[in-house]
Design a binder for these strands. Structure first.
Lengths: 195, 195
DNA sequence: TCCAAAATTATCAAAGTTGACAATTAAATG
DNA sequence: CATTTAATTGTCAACTTTGATAATTTTGGA
């Protein structure tokens, strides 16, 4: 006997806008007015649905961590039984599936990490998880490769991938993306040749 | 017959502080009050020595581009006659010579690039220059490698390096840096083996 | 239709940020 | 030691951002 409760939807809508603003203007540059404008809502609705600035940031961090973990898991679930690594590289570097906001939000949060040790810890943990999933794929495909090679290849592909996503805002060329993808594949084949 | 003119020194001092703040708080988050505090100066001195916010940003961009180009040139000048690539990788990934502010400022400027096509163009150009210098080293050491392999290795090492620098604020582990360096070396040796 | 619960809007004070300029102080030189 | 030039400090108004709360409107169900 009341008006329908849409707080959950509104909340997502607002956090989407906040993410966009953080990616574009940085943590401190993402004002509530801009967030409201991007979300297409009046500013007081932010407060009504999520809370004050502090609440908003906490919600963003939680959502970012869980959402990006879920999207990585879903990506891995699409890999076939064979040639998983080359398919993974194909997907990671395919501009159609690019999700630059993810790495940009990560970078924006990272910038503030020196002043927030708890945030720093969680971001390190997130990064470790990401790298570990890639390493697992290497272990699965090249079970005889040394641990040293596995961690090197994991860190390498992660770095090349993050860098490409971080460069999207400047309009990085398709050639550079293609070259980055080739480099990632070179790391994959390098491990194959060591057998 | 006057008080000594120290504008040039003050200017550098202020731009240093601005760079630090941009790296830490983003472009929009770097307020003049924070810059003044980091520089250890009163806020009006920013205006006196550099100008208003717009002037400050323009000066930062100019200085960033020229300074980083110079530091890359100086780095290359230290390379020996032989084994230049492995020494280059050693230097790029040596935590003692790390300069995370560079990549962080680059990322902060990048974030705003979608709204400033001229800035975007200049950042792309800067990136191309950087990658090209690395490619030149590959050409010098592996003259018979294909162009495709050269560009892949150049993009790969650049990406791995930028990523490591970008991760410093979260306190990335020495192991990850070491693994990244190994990945960069894998790209170098991969080209050697294709001969 | 009328009520209750929730969304939405209006509005305000407090704090922070920027731009600008006047007033003051400091130092080198004749 | 006086003069001149530049650094430094003080101060203000305009604007932006945030936090908070009261008032209003909307919607579904009794």
């Amino acid at each position: 006997m009341a008006r329908p409760d849409i707080k959950d939807d509104r909340r997502e809508q607002i956090l989407d806008a906040f993410e966009t603003c953080v990616a574009r203007y940085g943590l401190e540059g993402a004002t509530l007015a801009k967030v409201a404008e991007v979300a297409g809502l009046a500013r007081p609705l932010i407060r009504h649905n999520v809370g004050n600035r502090e609440d908003l940031l906490a919600a963003l961090i939680e959502r970012f961590l869980s959402q990006s973990r879920a999207s990585m898991a879903s990506l891995l679930s699409y890999l076939p039984g064979e040639n998983r690594l080359s398919v993974l590289v194909d997907l990671l570097f395919d501009p159609r599936y690019a999700n630059p906001r993810l790495v940009q939000v990560f970078n924006a949060l990272s910038a503030g990490a020196p002043d927030d040790s708890e945030l720093a810890r969680r971001l390190r943990e997130w990064l470790e998880d990401f790298v570990e999933q890639i390493e697992n794929e290497f272990v699965r495909e090249y079970p005889h490769a040394s641990k040293e090679q596995i961690t090197a290849a994991g860190a390498g592909i992660t770095g090349i991938y993050f860098n490409v996503e971080a460069l999207y805002p400047i309009g990085v060329s398709a050639q550079f993306i293609e070259a980055s993808k080739k480099a990632a594949l070179m790391l994959v084949t390098a491990l194959g040749k060591e057998l």
